[in-house]
């Protein structure tokens, strides 16, 4: 019993550590989002219908419709009509 509990706790801990924000593009066109992660600018390309994991340590993203978003790394976002909706 104790072994199972210990193993379960370790598993939960590990699952908690491994995290990043996931962005899903529900539109029919691909987007290239401007992302600033830890002060470094980059472009994040998401194909139509694709899903990416990004932004482990917090970042700023500019959505296709011009909105700025700040992510801390635990969010799940869907892009619909260029707008971001948080799940």
């Amino acid at each position: 019993m104790k072994a199972i509990l210990l193993a379960g706790v370790i598993a939960a801990g590990m699952a908690g550590v491994a995290q990043s924000a996931s962005i899903t593009n529900k539109d029919a066109q691909a987007y290239s989002l401007l992302m600033t992660e830890s002060g470094v600018r980059s472009e994040l390309a998401i194909g139509a219908g694709a899903s990416v994991s990004a932004c482990n340590a917090g970042c700023f993203i500019t959505m296709p419709n011009g909105d700025h978003e700040a992510l801390s790394g635990t969010e799940t976002i869907e892009i619909v009509n260029g707008k971001a909706t948080f799940k």
Partner: peptide, 10 residues
């Protein structure tokens, strides 16, 4: 937000 973004670059 864009202000914060540029600050993070700084």
């Amino acid at each position: 937000l864009s202000n914060a973004e540029s600050m993070s670059i700084r």
